[in-house]
Design a binder for these strands. Structure first.
Lengths: 194, 194, 194, 194
DNA sequence: CATGAATGAGATTTCATTCAT
DNA sequence: TATGAATGAAATCTCATTCAT
């Protein structure tokens, strides 16, 4: 059955996340992915045409998982403030779960997938649109200022969302200190000014 | 004198920025760096012990340039708001100047420099401290709320600073639209909330 | 019964002729032969021990077909001149029918079948003997000069027979111009000299 | 100097003739060519872009050598009969010298060099033209019949020239019996008929 | 009998690094 | 000091063959 094939594909992608996460794209060896997945090297090529394709499919999978999960996480919240907090928490959890592979590849694959599948590009755009939606909704419900430039606000939120992961990079690589989502969002909503 | 040697080292690093910027670390060839620098392949190894070392030194150089330049840019401004705006502009200009190499390597070198020189780690910390200083100063001068958690605020600023470059990644790769630093900072200072 | 098995073997050989004809021995894949024969890859190995064996059997089959067909074609002719013309036509038709596989393999299998089955060697010899017979007969009937060195004459005829296929190779690959068998044979019988 | 590079290229081609001659294109390994040439595997790639390119250049070299040598060999002879005899001898010597590689590749490279360089195609044509010239000259000098179809005659001669090598293939693989060029040519000139 | 998923040996090719000049 | 020809380790990918179903 095809679901068996799907299952095997998924196992390889799982293994790829581990290996690419540990070593990045160029240092991640196909042989190691195979070993990690508990199969032969040649078998990997029965399911994916090339190392690059494994990587692309892995990214696709992560993007989809990310966007889907994010929407699901946010859906339960009513207040925009809560949505943003949940989004921040979700992002942090996601990044932590896939920490290595994200740090090494998620925001850094442009040159690897120059012949990037349109679906991936779409997914990138989806993340932005997702945040834009929340902002728009916040303005409509009156929780956010009505004169807010929505695109700029989204950029800011996205930047901050991404900060959780920057913290580890910029402050200490081994930091496991989670940023306080509540504090962050409140600071953004209230403003830093006096 | 050693200054000739320094000069030559610098030329190689310049070439490395070009080559690594265009192709990333693993696809950037030492031979291309040599050609770009107008010297022989073997000569590169008279100045650097390995490809990895060239890369590390290049990062060091960029960090130092970044921090130094940032401090210099900000020094002329009195108001914290202006300092932040200038910082954002500076970051954007810096990222644009070294756009390719940053996108491909600046936030992605963990695995390349596992045996990272302490100086690089220090420089990363310096960037954070630099922002932290501005925030602290802002609180002291009363421009920022006194109950602000300084570290969190710095993380937010850093995240936003980094947004300028995220915009290109998340929205459209070919976008040349600069984010409006003034609008962004004001939004952060005033808050998004009603 | 075994005739079912024979039938299946024949189908595989037919498929092999197509595949080896298109891609040659090394580029012709067993999987493609299987697909062409409409059976599973594993099934091929129920009938043949290895790719090499398929190839050897295919050659055997072609040799036998060639020699048999050649004799049959010639048998109806009385005059040696006609026999030779018919032989030339037959060879051309045969080569055209199996054009690709012959061009790619017929004269090029030495290293593939180093452990060549004696039967193949015998078949090669048979082709020569077949021509030798015609020459001998021609001398006996007085159509050919009595002082003709039979072996040399056979070599010449064989070379010329093979020319039909050389024409395509040496002049233009896409040439479909058949050489005029009558003209050729007459030229050989009459001689080129004044 | 460039002649050093030329020299090295030639050495590699020599090694390639040996290796491809022994094992054919697909079984001839680049590593073996390198070893045969007494250099490292990587060095081969400093001189040729790929295995295919080595093969193509080798063919080019052989064609050129063949045509040049053939013309030189024939130039000393006045009579057409002698020219043809010399050509036959020359061909036999050439084939013997490069026996293996010719048997395995010379008439069998169509699919390897699909992207065949125009120069190779030209060389193939040159061989035919070369024979055509001799025939034409023979007619002009009156040594050959004036009503001879020149193209057909050339095909015949080419086929026969090629016979010397067919002899080994069709009769016995280990035969070192040279065909008697004089006898062959005379038979062609006089004709086989009574 | 028939199958095709799984395998891994082995080939080509790349490129950082060395070292004789 | 500067060079670039030479190197070979190592990686990706192919495909004949096996064998559990």
């Amino acid at each position: 059955m095809s679901s068996l094939r799907e299952q095997r594909r998924y196992e390889i992608i799982e293994a790829a996340m581990k290996v690419f996460g540990e070593h990045g794209f160029y240092q991640g060896k196909v042989g190691e992915i195979a070993k990690e997945a508990g199969i032969g090297k040649g078998t990997v090529y029965e399911y994916f045409g090339s190392k690059k394709e494994i990587f692309q499919q892995m990214l696709m999978y992560m993007f989809e998982t990310y966007v889907e999960g994010g929407k699901k996480a946010v859906i339960g919240e009513k207040a925009i403030r809560d949505k943003l907090i949940v989004l921040l928490d979700y992002h942090y959890a996601f990044v932590n779960q896939y920490a290595d592979v994200i740090e090494r590849t998620f925001f850094h694959f442009e040159n690897i997938v120059k012949d990037i599948k349109p679906e991936i590009a779409q997914n990138k755009r989806k993340i932005f649109d997702f945040v834009l939606e929340i902002i728009t909704e916040g303005i409509e419900t009156g929780e956010l200022r009505s004169n807010l430039d929505k695109e700029t606000a989204s950029i800011i939120i996205l930047g901050i969302v991404n900060s959780s992961h920057l913290k580890r990079i910029f402050i200490k690589a081994d930091s496991i200190n989670k940023i306080d989502s509540r504090a962050v969002i409140d600071m953004v909503l209230l403003g830093m000014g006096r």
